[in-house]
Simulated assay, not measured.
Amino acid sequence: MTLSALILAGGRGRRLGNMEKALMNCDGKSVLERTINVLDDIVDEVLVSVRDEEQENEFKAHACGKKMVLDSYSDIGPLAGILEGFKAAKGEYIFVTACDMPFIDPKVVELMFRCAEGHDAAVPLRPDGSMEPLCGVYRVGPMLPLIERSISSGKRFILAPVFELDDVVGVEMGRIRQVDPQLRTFININTFDDMDELNIC
């Protein structure tokens, strides 16, 4: 079975003064390179979603030769990048993550793929029961038309198409802690305080 991964890198980082989060330095590498290196050992292809040609050119040196897909919709948020990634994916299943999550544990990615097999998706569940879509694995076939329908109907939040799937496995944090005890996979960088705390520049 062919497996894919999609890194969403098209955001504008407004809370960080429009800084490109994917290019932040983390242990001597850009966050984008670091994430690609983790995923490369697990999946058959890694795709990078960017918003336009200018960002594509800026990221080329950090994309490790991976295919970059460009948004065909402007200013509608992450669903635009998810749509293009799913269109381009060769795999039956695709792991979706964001470029501001620099500590993804490969064991978590592998767990999510195992949980998704034979289902439409596997998505982590937070303690309050809500879903964390940007560490989920999705079956491309049923998900793609739902993404397109969500965008065309104006439902532009990430979970809109996920809510329409027939067979979603919720993976509780307790199970994920068994392979990532500190849940570092879910750390994301949104503010300068986050950068300082994590020693990222």
Rank of each mutant, 00 (worst) to 15 (best):
Lys29Phe: 05
Val168Leu: 03
Asn25Thr: 13
Met1Val: 03
Met131Glu: 00
Phe95Lys: 02
Asp27Asn: 15
Gly154Lys: 10
Arg149Cys: 04
Ala5Ser: 12
Arg156Ala: 02
Val69Gln: 12
Ile94Gly: 09
Leu39Glu: 10
Glu164Gly: 00
Asn188Trp: 15
Pro181Leu: 08
Asp128Gly: 06
Ile104Gln: 09
Pro124Lys: 06
Val171Ser: 00
Glu53Asn: 08
Lys67Ile: 07
Ala98Pro: 01
Phe113Leu: 05
Glu33Thr: 15
Gly174Ala: 13
Leu111Phe: 07
Val108Trp: 07
Ile189His: 04
Ile104Asn: 06
Ile94Thr: 11
Val46Glu: 04
Lys155Ser: 13
Glu84Ala: 09
Asp180Thr: 12
Glu20Met: 10
Val31Ala: 14
Ala80Tyr: 07
Glu172Ser: 09
Pro161Ile: 00
His62Gly: 06
Arg51Ala: 09
Gln55Phe: 08
Arg34Ala: 05
Leu8Arg: 01
Leu32Arg: 12
Gly81His: 04
Thr2Leu: 12
Ala98Ser: 11
Glu172Gly: 07
Asp120Leu: 02
Gly118Leu: 03
Gln55Gly: 05
Asn199Met: 12
Asp120Lys: 02
Arg184Tyr: 00
Leu134Lys: 09
Asp44Trp: 04
Ile200Ala: 11
Pro133Asn: 11
Leu165Ala: 09
Glu92Cys: 05
Leu111Lys: 06
Lys90Tyr: 01
Asp193Tyr: 10
Val162Pro: 00
Ser30Ile: 07
Cys201Leu: 08
Arg15Asp: 12
Leu83Phe: 01
Ser30Trp: 08
Arg126Gly: 03
Met195Glu: 11
Leu183Gln: 10
Asp128Ile: 01
Pro181Asn: 02
Leu83Asp: 10
Ala98Trp: 07
Leu70Lys: 15
Gly141Met: 04
Ala122Glu: 06
Gly77Asn: 08
Pro181Thr: 06
Lys21Gly: 06
Cys201Trp: 05
Gln55Met: 15
Cys135Gln: 13
Cys26Lys: 12
Glu20Arg: 09
Asp193Trp: 09
Ala160Asp: 11
Lys60Ile: 10
Lys87Ser: 08
Lys66Asp: 04
Phe59Arg: 11
Gln182Val: 04
Leu16Arg: 10
Glu197Pro: 02
Ile176Gly: 03
Val38Gly: 07
Arg156Lys: 13
Val38Lys: 13
